[in-house]
Design a protein around this nucleic acid. Structure first.
Length: 245
DNA sequence: GATTTAATAT
DNA sequence: AATATTAAAT
């Protein structure tokens, strides 16, 4: 029987636990996780560390060892959040990254194909994910939050089926609405930042995000230069219902 | 099934 | 506020 050191199961009753432990599992966890599961697991890890240190320090294996705080801290890697797990890094959209994003988005918008996936490919940044681009795009589109109905250009339709503008507006559905960028109509290739400076025509190649991500932490406001296109439908799409009825 | 988007969560 | 994740849609 091949048993992992930690076993997760929906019905971890006594019999199951006994069987797993008897076959080499170190820990059995019942799903779904809740409460202090990871806290307890972390304690196991720390205990292992302590035992290891203890055996290293003691000569005969019996003597209890008192370790200084610094000694402990140097041997047990805890994280500042106290969980034993590092906080997941989140991407920071630097000016450089954002200008790359804008450059690609702007071009794609002119072609009428401004989707997260296209943007991602166009940006060519290793490690950057489609979801990150989509999230950034959403943030840029919203650009302040206040909407005026029918403000901005009507969205281009991917299947090109609609003809009247009102129908086009009402044709909006999840998964179908490309972005139309209108902020840069008269700016050629240059991109204006919120500080008033213009980017150069060439955008420097971005770093590999997989290996060089930075933590969020700056509280500085960012104002991405997208124009708001107006919210078309306010209701969240629900299965089996017409959100525009 | 992949992708997009609005909404929500962190 | 900025970014990530989820849920609904096609």
């Amino acid at each position: 029987m091949d048993i992992p050191s930690m076993v997760m199961h929906e019905e971890a009753d006594d019999n199951f636990i006994i069987e797993m432990l008897a076959n080499g599992a170190l820990h059995v966890v019942e799903r779904p996780f809740g409460g202090d599961v990871f806290f307890r697991i972390r304690q196991c890890v720390i205990r292992e560390h302590l035992n290891k240190l203890e055996s290293e320090c003691s000569t005969d294996g019996k003597k209890k060892v008192t370790m200084s705080k610094t000694k402990r801290n140097s041997n047990i890697q805890l994280h500042e959040n106290g969980t034993g797990f590092a906080k997941k890094k989140s991407l920071e959209w630097t000016d450089e990254l954002h200008s790359n994003f804008l450059r690609v988005s702007h071009q794609l918008a002119r072609e009428g194909r401004c989707f997260p996936k296209d943007i991602l490919v166009g940006m060519g940044v290793p490690g950057l994910t489609r979801m990150q681009v989509a999230s950034h795009l959403q943030n840029c589109r919203r650009g302040g939050l206040k909407f005026t109905e029918n403000q901005g250009l009507p969205s281009a339709s991917r299947n090109g089926s609609s003809n009247s503008s009102q129908e086009e507006v009402n044709s909006k559905r999840c998964g179908h609405t490309p972005l139309v960028v209108t902020s840069f109509e008269n700016q050629k290739e240059r991109i204006k930042f919120n500080d008033g400076t213009l980017s150069g025509n060439e955008v420097e190649k971005d770093k590999d995000l997989m290996n060089n991500q930075s933590l969020i932490g700056s509280s500085s406001r960012k104002n991405y230069g997208f124009q708001n296109h107006g919210q078309v439908g306010s209701k969240r799409c629900k299965k089996g219902s017409n959100p525009f009825a």
